[in-house]
Amino acid sequence: MSHQVIKTKSAPEPVGPYNQAIAAKGTLVFLAGQIPLDPHTGQIVGENEITAQTQQVMKNIEAILRASGANWSNVVKTTVFLTDLGNFGEMNQVYAQYFPESTAPARACVEVSRLPKDVLVEIECIAVVE
């Protein structure tokens, strides 16, 4: 399978053996899960604050989408990982700012027991670049 690694300094460096995103066959771009790290400092943004953390995650995703030649309208699938589904409403308010309801991608949202660096939210997505 032909694929290209997508990497930008406008989003945090991976904290493990993965890439920010992979463009497969030049049309599909698979973004690794993004957590609320500031790409310049490597520090967590919004300690224990779901709104600030979700905003940073979305900024990181946007930077990677741009680096791959995509934008929010190219996203076809997201997966949201929350350490507490009680934070769903606040996360969803931030998330909704990026996706109009009429064209929003398919989404799954699950509660997990723990995320890297003990953050509250992680989001991954798939985009189609034409």
Rank of each mutant, 00 (worst) to 15 (best):
A11F: 07
L31F: 01
A24K: 10
A23F: 01
E13T: 06
A21V: 13
K9G: 05
G16F: 09
A24G: 03
K9M: 06
K25L: 05
G16S: 10
P14M: 10
V15P: 00
L37K: 03
G33S: 12
T27S: 02
K9S: 15
P12H: 14
G33A: 10
A23L: 12
L28F: 08
L31Y: 01
P36R: 02
V15F: 05
V15A: 06
I35Q: 06
G16D: 14
P14W: 06
P12G: 03
V29N: 06
L28G: 06
A23Q: 15
F30N: 14
N19K: 04
K9C: 03
G33Y: 13
I22E: 11
A23S: 14
L37P: 08
K9R: 15
G16E: 04
I22H: 07
A21P: 09
G26H: 04
V15R: 09
L37S: 07
I22S: 04
E13G: 00
G16R: 01
Q34R: 11
P12W: 13
A24M: 12
L37D: 09
N19H: 14
P36Y: 10
Q34W: 02
L31M: 15
Q34K: 12
A11P: 10
A21F: 04
A21W: 04
F30G: 05
K25P: 00
K9E: 15
D38L: 04
T8S: 09
Y18C: 02
A23R: 15
T8H: 05
P17N: 09
P17R: 12
N19C: 10
T8I: 05
Q20F: 01
Y18D: 01
P14S: 14
I22F: 07
T8N: 12
T8R: 05
P14T: 14
L31S: 09
L31N: 08
